[in-house]
Write a protein that binds this DNA or RNA. Structure first.
Lengths: 241, 241
DNA sequence: ATGTTTATTATGTCTACACATAAGGAGTCG
DNA sequence: CGACTCCTTATGTGTAGACATAATAAACAT
């Protein structure tokens, strides 16, 4: 026999941790491992699947990060009673969100002021008295139709550069992302009644329900920026899993 | 010298991947690795930190899962331009959400009907003609005050048990969680104008903006349940990181 | 019975090593 | 110049083995 025979070992059939994950999820969702049941130990499973314990550990860990499993030392691995308790939302830049749908993106600066922070803002951003802020109103269009109204406040003390920047060409979002280092963020979603600005720019009727997201950004305990994004009528923020 | 001296090796100083992660994040947020910069390779970093490449890989992988880094084969590891593009929301059961604030939880069934699915619902849940559904209206109270209105539809064909269940004592949410296996889920957030139900039960004025979350649940390609949760005035869904 | 220590055990993580794979870049050829 | 191949390189993932740690269960003492 020629020694080429040894090449038979092609398609090495190495079971990857992803395959193991898939099989585990299968067994949980459609198979024998119902909610609350206790899984065999890692060693036993590793043996059954023909993988090393390292790999099995990784698979189980990732499945548990998906929210399916609950793992405790000594106690073992258990299928969670309540399926998944977390929702992940991708929050791309508006530009990316619009361009992904195939629509043309356009940005427009509506107004720009450098003023003393009003009281409510001082409290919200924990600014000191007489703090100056840059106030911007911007519009984001998808194929010429207003898609999102951006109402942004920037702490001038924390970011003096912002007072010199005119945001007519490049949106504050993209500018900030390129300028400010990573920071602490607080995001909220809420429903608001359409105010004058939204009526004027987004085409709502006064008092219409508007889906808004608010984002406050901090860096080293100093507020950097606070922005409210008002979305067009009927906007939904959706995620699937 | 007594041989107890050897015990000096206590506190073995093993650098864990968590410590490495912390240091990496530090260098990104406050240190030399600004947005867009390219990190040294795993091997080099591993050497610098005095850990194995496996550990360094894990650290880098997890930091990148947090949204800080972008990793590509051959291209290397790069600091993301846009800090964090995803928001994670914990979505506990209402009961847990209310009890966490220290308030007393109370559940009340408002109405319960078994009917033919209306057209919009048939389309939304992809039910066939003449499909029967259970329609529930439920209220969740925090300290006696209406907190959330639950408008739920259950596919009677996929879940015949639901037609026999009277949901006067236990909420459909908790019942479903205990009954239905893990499933595919689609969650949306949206702003709605208060309708008659919300006015009657949540104390909104007609047309008020209401923050709603809608959740559609599937199991093996069959719709199980569709629920809309309307929140009380001023409700915000918030996350921080 | 109750509180405390001790042993056991399943998961958590580290190491060293090897091979797989994607993708940038150089070189080649038309 | 463009399209192709091939090489190189950084990350991706697998293995075996060892020790760490948390948490239960058993043994013990009060």
């Amino acid at each position: 026999m020629p020694d080429t025979v040894r090449i038979e070992t092609a398609k090495a059939e190495t079971t990857t941790f992803r395959e193991v994950m898939a099989e585990i999820i299968q067994r949980i969702t459609e198979g024998p491992w119902g909610p609350g049941s206790l899984l065999p130990g890692e060693v036993e499973l590793a043996e059954e699947f023909g993988v090393s314990r390292t790999t099995m550990n990784r698979a189980l860990r990732e499945v548990s990060e998906l929210g399916f499993l609950d793992r405790k030392r000594k106690a073992g691995t258990r299928v969670r009673m309540a399926p998944i308790r977390q929702a992940r939302f991708e929050m791309p830049l508006v530009r990316a969100e619009i361009e992904k749908t195939g629509a043309a993106y356009r940005y427009q600066l509506v107004s720009r002021d450098v003023i003393l922070a009003p009281d409510w803002l001082r409290e919200r951003m924990r600014l000191k008295a007489r703090a100056r802020v840059v106030h911007l109103l911007c519009l984001h269009f998808a194929d010429g139709v207003a898609f999102q109204l951006e109402d942004r406040w920037i702490n001038a003390q924390a970011l003096p550069l912002a007072t010199e920047q005119d945001f007519s060409a490049v949106g504050p979002n993209e500018w900030l992302v390129a300028t400010v280092p990573f920071s602490e963020v607080e995001i909220s979603f809420l429903a608001q009644a359409a105010d004058a600005q939204m009526v004027a720019h987004l085409g709502h009727a006064p008092g219409d329900p508007v889906f808004c997201s608010e984002r406050a950004t901090w860096w080293q305990n100093a507020a950097v920026t606070l922005v409210t994004l008002a979305h067009r009528r009927g906007y939904r923020m959706t995620t699937r899993y």
